[in-house]
Design a protein around this nucleic acid. Structure first.
Lengths: 219, 219
DNA sequence: TTTCATTTGATATAATTTTATCGAATGGAG
DNA sequence: CTCCATTCGATAAAATTATATCAAATGAAA
C-alpha cells in the first residue's frame, strides 16, 4: 500500500498547487512563481511538479497551466469520481453533506447512515438510512470510501461495520485511532492536532511576552 | 517562533497520547503499551513522552497516568484557557460553535462574526456580531485566536482584518494559503489534503485490482 | 546574431524524523 | 537473595524530506 511513487509530504502539497492552478488565468505557470506565492522552497515545488507532470515544463516559460491541472487531477484520481457514504449525521455530518466543494475533489456523498434514524429521510438531497441497511447498500453499490462522523463512543464499532461492508478508505473525524485491517486506509481529520499546534504557539507567545516584560523590568 | 523544543511531528502526536491517557484508568502507563495500542514505534513514543514528562517514568512500571496527563496538558497549554473568535457562520462555523469538545483543549469560542449578520444574534449561547464590530471587541477582550470559516473569496480579506484586530493564531478552514505577518501563525485544516491522500489510495487500490485481474487473465 | 536572464531538471548536501540497539534501573517470581 | 523480564533513557544508524548548486534549454532583448 505504501507504494506511493510520491512522498506523503508531496501528496499533501499537491492540493495546494491544484487550488492555485484552478484559480490562475495565465496560460503558463512556473514552479518559481508557485513557490514564491506559497513561500515554499522552489526546488521542492519543482520536484513535486516533476512527479505529476507528464510533459514537463519548458525552460523560461514553465508549465502549461491547463495541462498541469489535468495531470494533477489525474494523479490525484479526481477524474474518476469516488462515491462515498457518511456515517453519523450530527452537526458535522450535516455540514459535510451540505458542503458543495467535494465534487471538485472527485468525491460524491451518495448516502448517509445514522443510528438514530429509524426510517429513510433526506438531508438536502442526500438520503439518510438506518445503520442496519449500510452493509447491504454499500456492498451493492461497491462504495469504497466512508466518512466517519459519529461520536467517540461508537467510533470503533461503526468503523468495524464499515470495513465489514467493504469500505477501503475511511475519513475519520473522530478523535479515535481506529483499528483497521492492512488493506484499509484511515485518514484522520484531527482537529485536536491543529489545536495542539495553535495552543502551543499561543502559549509560547505569551511566555515570550512575559519574558520580555521581565526583561524590561530588570533593566 | 520556531523555537519549539519539540518537533512538529511530535507535537502532532501528543494529542493522541492525551486522548489515550484521558480514557485510561490504570494508575501507570508505559510508552510500550501506548506504542502497541497506536501501532507507533516504541522508541518514538518514549522520546515524545520524554519531552513532556517532568518526572520521567520508572523502569518496569512506566509513567504515572495522572501526572503524565497533567504534564501533557501543561505542555500543550490546555490549562490556560484560550479564548477564540470564529469568523464566518455557515454550516461549518455553526458546527464548530456547537462542538462541545473544545473545552477539553482549552479553547473557548467567545463570539462569532459574520458579514451577513446586520445585528447581534445568538447561535446556541454564542453571540454573533456583524463584522464591523470585530476589531473593537477583539482588541478589548485581547483575543489571540481566530477560527476562519468564511468563503474562499473573502478569506484573505477577513484574515487581514483579524490580524489587524490583534489575532496571533488563525485556524484556517478555507482552502486558501493565507498571507500573514511573521508573528502570526496559521494552522490549515485542510480537508483537500486529506481528500488527496484518500483519493490516491482508492485509485491505487483500483489500479492494483486491475493489474491483478490482468495478471490472472494472462496466466 | 549574440548575450542575458529565467526556468527546468539533475545531482549533491543538509536537516529532520524514524527506527534500531544497548546498558541500567527496578520490581516481581522462584 | 538471585534471576529474569520489563521499561526507561541514551546513543547510533537508517530513512525520509528539504534545500543548495549547477549545467542545459530557451526565449527575449540588445
Amino acid at each position: 500500500m505504501e507504494n506511493l511513487n510520491c512522498s506523503l509530504q508531496t501528496l499533501r502539497r499537491l492540493p495546494y498547487y491544484l487550488y492555485y492552478l484552478r484559480h490562475c488565468d495565465e496560460e503558463y505557470v512556473s514552479a518559481t512563481a508557485i513557490a514564491k506565492d506559497f513561500r515554499f522552497n522552489e526546488v521542492q515545488v519543482r520536484k513535486d511538479l516533476a512527479i505529476v507532470s507528464k510533459t514537463g515544463g519548458s525552460p523560461r516559460k514553465g508549465f502549461i497551466t491547463r495541462e498541469l491541472i489535468h495531470d494533477l487531477e489525474e494523479f490525484l484520481g479526481y477524474n474518476n469520481v469516488n462515491d462515498a457514504i457518511i456515517v453519523g449525521v450530527g452537526h458535522l455530518g450535516k455540514a459535510l453533506i451540505n458542503y458543495a466543494g467535494f465534487k471538485d475533489y472527485g468525491i460524491n456523498i451518495v448516502m448517509g447512515f445514522d443510528r438514530i434514524i429509524k426510517t429513510e429521510m433526506l438531508i438536502g438531497s442526500t438520503a439518510i438510512f438506518p445503520m442496519d441497511r449500510m452493509k447491504n447498500l454499500v456492498k451493492r453499490l461497491k462504495i469504497k470510501l466512508g466518512i466517519l462522523t459519529v461520536t467517540q463512543k461508537s467510533a470503533q464499532y461503526v468503523c468495524d461495520r464499515m470495513v465489514d461492508a467493504g469500505i477501503k478508505a475511511i475519513w475519520n473525524f473522530t478523535p479515535c485511532m481506529l483499528r483497521v485491517p492492512q488493506d484499509v486506509m484511515v485518514q484522520n481529520e484531527n482537529m485536536a492536532m491543529s489545536l495542539a499546534i495553535l495552543s502551543k504557539h499561543l502559549n509560547e507567545e505569551i511566555d515570550n511576552e512575559t519574558q520580555a516584560l521581565i526583561g524590561a523590568l530588570e533593566e
